[in-house]
Amino acid sequence: MLFKRLLSFVALLMLSISGHAGSTDQWQTLQKMAVAAHVLNYQGIFVCQTGAQSKSVEIKHIYNGHDEFARNVVLDGSPREVLNQSGDVVIYNPKNEKIVIEKRRGQNMFPAILPTDLDSIKDNYTLKVGEIERVADRQAQILLLESKDNLRYSYKFWVDSEYSLLLKSVMLNNRNEALDSMAFTQLTLIKSMELDWFKPKIDGKKAYVMEDVNTIADKQDSSHWRLKSLPEGFVKVDQMMRAVKGKTWPVTHIIFSDGLASVSLFIEPLENGIKPRTGRSLVGNTSFYANVAGNLQITVVGEVPEVTVAKIANAVVFVK
């Protein structure tokens, strides 16, 4: 509800300030970009890249004034489909002879990768205006969202000069190396409000099964650990108990976010006869850190620099 009210408010704001892009504050440009992805009607193809992998994705998005409908079909390799209705995401994920139906909370889905409330972003990033470049046959304004510290990655956005839609996004580390990117190669705005396309392609030869639910909501804090100060800008957004493959015990799973990036913290008791895991790694845009606190195994994973996962892991204090 709040989200929708915010959307309509900012949509009005957009209308009132459109046509004066040159004179408006760059944060307003970013605000318009955050909203445009939700309220415009468009279809096209974007390329999603991380590490050595790259996939083309066909997208169609419609906003009817109340709800958003988007269908994303992966065009390369396995024909995965991602349907998003106002943030409720259902993924049709082909696995061998089955199609596994997965439900997700929709967040940061390109081109709507920014939250519509930019307050937390403003706290942690500075914004610079770059040049004009052409992307997917459109004129685009470059905006640089630079991290104020070394705790999060920076972003480079190419924003459609006319419609404020995000055309291309690149995530950069502090050496200015691209970690992942999403970019339209084709884009058209559409007028039709028909919704007959908003459904998965059904494969009659395959069995459709729901993904195993292996979490339960559990917000209770344990008496065996507590959290010291977290890295600047990161707040707890969710907590659950989760069954993890190969583990006898349930694992406490806590999610932190700074508004753009998410980090998962896993806390579990050490098991007799199983060696605790320690170490760190960085694969593509994802950092990993594991250590031991008292008799707890601590594991942290997230799309943030290594220092951030280490700080979150070290924030866990074992209470005997």
């Binding site: 909370r105 990768i113 999403m182 998962s264 790694s281 960085l282 994802t286």
Partner: peptide, 24 residues
């Protein structure tokens, strides 16, 4: 240095998907 245990990565991505993890 080049490895993240799949069970934790999958758990992270299922509850806190990043913009690329929906597709890759």
């Amino acid at each position: 240095a080049e490895f993240i245990p799949a069970e934790y990565l999958t758990a992270h991505q299922s509850s806190a998907p990043s913009s690329t993890s929906y597709y890759i």
